[in-house]
Amino acid sequence: MSTGELRGRTVVVTGASAGIGKAAAGVFAEAGMQVVLAGRDEERGERAAREIGERGGEARFVRCDVTRADDVTRLFVAAVDAYGRVDHAFNNAGVPGDGRLVDLTPADFDRAFAVNTRGVWLCLREELRLMAAQGHGSIVNNTSVHGLRTVFPGIGAYVASKHAAVALTRVAAMEHAGDGVRVNALAPGPIDTEMLAASEAAVGGATAWRRLIPSGEVGTVRQVADVALWLFSSAASYVNGQTIGVDGGFLAT
């Protein structure tokens, strides 16, 4: 895939201090993009930005809690102040939501939706305003195969919040297609991250997933990031409102 056209463009990545977000920020920087990393963990986020700089990329970190509207607004003000515009965004920040529905507390449920759904909406609101005004842009929301299909019991809040994020993707794509803005989503299956490792107790983690994936393999963060990069490119210019599985064939079963 040729991504030379993305050189010099600005991308905002949420949840960028670890896992898929950190990997994606690195992949985008390799393509020559100016990367604004956002997250709550300032130490890890600053380190991730420095690592990109040490490899010759252009990146900076902005502390942001995507559940806080003021934080999200400040994030995009900072991005525009630094680079003049926001061409692309990868809304990646997410949290688990473990527990059977009857055992969840209202706080458990609200936390999953605050990050995985409301956080996506707050970011979309800023991104869509900026991109519609400039007449171009591409947004990728990182959801989950759980947003398309209920896989395991015991993670109901997570499943529901990811379904809602898929719905937000479709609505945003429909509302802003005429503004030159595309909005798509990724639906990763099991990816080798801290979150997958932490799911061992609740749903069996990688061991349980390998029995469900046709390839029998757990995915890598790079495999997810590469699809997001493709969605930003002109090669995907007629792809809009879609949720693309990055799942080793799971959704095909």
Rank of each mutant, 00 (worst) to 15 (best):
V183E: 04
D65T: 00
D98N: 15
A172D: 03
P153I: 12
E58K: 01
A198S: 14
P106R: 07
T207F: 00
G97F: 10
H163Y: 13
T105I: 06
E200V: 02
G94R: 04
R182K: 08
L122D: 08
H176E: 02
R74K: 15
G205P: 01
G189Q: 01
G249L: 10
A24N: 06
G147C: 09
L75S: 12
S199E: 14
A59G: 10
N141L: 10
V12A: 11
N116A: 07
N141E: 10
G8Y: 13
L168P: 13
G97N: 12
V227I: 11
G156Q: 10
A177Q: 15
V159L: 14
G241V: 09
N91K: 03
G156K: 07
G99A: 06
L229C: 07
G97M: 14
F90P: 07
F28H: 03
V36L: 10
A16W: 03
I52H: 10
G15Q: 12
R170T: 01
L122V: 06
A31I: 09
R118N: 09
A31W: 13
A133S: 11
G99T: 06
R40K: 06
G97R: 14
R44W: 02
L130V: 02
G39F: 12
A173D: 10
T3Q: 00
A225V: 07
E200P: 00
E54N: 00
V27H: 08
Y238A: 14
R125D: 15
L104T: 03
D41E: 08
Q223E: 15
G4A: 11
N116G: 08
D65V: 05
T243H: 14
R7G: 03
G135Q: 08
H136F: 07
L148H: 05
D98L: 10
I52R: 11
A228N: 01
G156D: 13
R85D: 13
V239C: 13
V62C: 00
A114K: 03
V166N: 14
T143C: 11
L231P: 04
E51C: 01
V95M: 08
L196T: 06
A206P: 02
F152T: 14
R118E: 08
A173T: 14
P214R: 12
D108W: 11
V35Q: 12
A157L: 10
C64M: 02
V227P: 00
V120W: 06
M131L: 03
V140N: 00
E30I: 02
V218N: 01
L130A: 06
N116C: 08
T117A: 15
A23P: 00
A78W: 09
D110S: 14
S237Y: 09
A206G: 07
C123P: 12
R222D: 07
T150S: 14
S233H: 02
A157Q: 08
E51D: 04
D65R: 09
N141G: 08
R222N: 01
A187T: 03
F152S: 09
A235R: 15
R85H: 10
